[in-house]
Design a protein around this nucleic acid. Structure first.
Lengths: 120, 120
DNA sequence: CTACATCCTCAAGTGGACTTGAGGTCAAGG
DNA sequence: CCTTGACCTCAAGTCCACTTGAGGATGTAG
């Protein structure tokens, strides 16, 4: 399969696919003419990348997760990272909830000058 | 007041203060020798910036809020931006909660290969 | 007088995930 | 034969909020 079709089916741009290759997430073989040749398996990997991204992993972390060879090594590597992520995400949610509170208070505030706002 | 003292009292770096000036958030007058001269009012403005940042505004948005001159113009400008922010923040919180769910399910999952994970 | 802190400007670097642009190759259809 | 579209590489640009670095000026204490 050529890059254009992969891009269309995976709903990514060809530039993104080449970028993923550049940073070591995928490694499609090349034809004699130098063009990339993908097989069906790539969609599985791309889905995994998307899943991991939605879970908050960076592409760098995802690469290290994908490149885990030994069985069991994955969960050994994944667990501490995921546990840290859970803490980070919880913290982020707290921050955003504080943000929401501030915004809603601000909307209730009748100040005409920000530096005069009751929130100070 | 010189920039160093402002930085110390506001707990910012001098570089940040100069940066805020560069992007139009503050505009301290200069002495004859070219050095910046701040007055007490700057702390009020810096506190406002910090408050607005915590509420999720970008520095660009904060600039447009700070540079509101006419009374009443502030709330006229602030309200729609803040309402949009509220929606964005709520959406972000939803995303992060989904992220948390994914992570926690992942921690419960015994897969040894990410592309094999039950989450797929 | 000299050392040192503090200040100044301007330019470039950081991170993350891409996107955009320039310049070139290759295969198929009309 | 020529155009068109898909492909290639490499370099640089984007956003945001700063930070870092180079290179130089100024003010003050000892």
């Amino acid at each position: 399969m050529r890059i254009g079709e992969v891009a269309k089916r995976a709903k990514l741009t060809v530039a993104t696919l080449r970028y993923y290759e550049e940073i070591g997430l995928i490694a499609p073989p090349r034809r004699v003419n130098g063009r990339r040749s993908y097989n069906e398996g790539v969609f599985e990997v791309l889905a995994t990348i998307r899943l991991a991204q939605r879970a908050g992993f960076t592409l760098k972390e995802i690469r290290s997760l994908l490149n885990t060879d030994a069985a069991g090594a994955l969960s050994a590597r994944w667990r501490p990272i995921a546990e840290r992520k859970v803490r980070e995400v919880k913290e982020t949610i707290r921050e955003y909830q504080a943000r929401l509170t501030l915004l809603e208070q601000g909307l209730d505030c009748a100040c005409t000058d920000l530096t005069d706002c009751v929130l100070h």
